[in-house]
């Protein structure tokens, strides 16, 4: 069973060869670190505090922007692209007439989407690291070269982020499968992104239950909306539990629909 899943996963990954998706993941990951680096370099003394590890501030600044403004569009586009490849090529009939259960195709596609999103986070992390050291070559006063990012802080941060976005991944996957016209899930994603941003900024309690706000809220325990996202005393905070619940719900619903679907 696991071998079958791995085979399907490899095939799904291979299918994305020579597609623009890899560029989306790459540029999506490095965009914010590049922008913040330019901002640091254009006003270096404004962003310098001597004898303090600069990585914390640099990663906090870039990850806040990345998780709200970049990661959500990446999720929407990745889901639409991966699924629309089948709609556009009319290849569902081939996939589902192979001697494979639909579950293997469904979950291997989802796994590929999650891997690509995770890759964009890794690209972001690594590009921020490289650019931090690059800045220290030009302005040693930044002191990036004297410290190393606090991984004990960053790894949980990115883990929370990955869990916080699960609900949106599940929802967008479900929508992309349902609508043959790829513009519909993209439009829903854009609308969700805008509404989610407003809900997050307004501090509304609905943000907790709105998938498109959860990516912003998940690492916001100590900032403006700390009253919303309660620390549960476990590794996961409240938003993450809700995000996981939504993810399970959307994925189960999507699978149920996909299993029933007539490929006409």
């Amino acid at each position: 069973m696991l071998l079958l899943f791995i085979r399907c996963f490899h095939a799904e990954l291979y299918k994305l060869k020579s597609t623009p998706l890899r560029w989306l993941i790459l540029f999506g990951g490095i965009l914010v670190p590049i922008m913040i680096t330019i901002s640091f370099l254009t006003s270096p003394y404004h962003n310098t505090t001597l004898n303090v590890n600069p990585w914390g501030y640099f990663y906090k600044l870039t990850s806040d922007i990345f998780s709200v403004f970049i990661l959500l569009p990446i999720i929407v586009l990745t889901n639409s692209f991966v699924v629309n490849l089948e709609h556009q090529s009319d290849t569902w009939k081939r996939l589902y007439s192979m001697p494979l259960k639909r579950a293997y195709i469904y979950f291997s596609k989802l796994a590929v989407i999650l891997l690509l999103i995770f890759t964009s986070i890794i690209v972001y992390f690594l590009s921020a690291l490289v650019l931090g050291y690059f800045m220290s070559l030009i302005f040693p006063e930044f002191e990036f070269q004297y410290y190393f990012p606090n991984m004990g802080e960053l790894i949980p941060r990115f883990t929370h982020l990955m869990i916080g976005i699960l609900s949106v991944v599940g929802l967008q996957y479900c929508l992309s499968l349902h609508f043959k016209n790829f513009l519909i899930p993209i439009m829903v994603g854009i609308m969700g992104f805008i509404i989610g941003l407003f809900i997050y900024i307004s501090g509304s309690k609905y943000g907790l239950h709105f998938p498109y706000s959860q990516a912003a809220l998940v690492n916001d325990l100590d900032i403006i909306h700390s009253t919303l996202n309660k620390d549960t005393g476990t590794f996961f905070n409240k938003v993450e539990y809700i995000s996981i619940a939504f993810f399970v719900l959307f994925v189960a619903l999507g699978y149920w629909k996909e299993r029933q679907r007539d490929v006409t």
Binding site: R7, H10, A11, Y14, R94, L100
Partner: peptide
């Protein structure tokens, strides 16, 4: 099976399309 128009990925080569089926099966 071959149902109506062939189900192929236009961004891949003929060989890659076949390799994809090999990977699945």
């Amino acid at each position: 099976s071959l149902i109506e128009s062939p189900a192929i990925y236009s961004h891949l080569t003929g060989y890659q399309n076949l390799k994809l089926v090999c990977k699945y099966l």
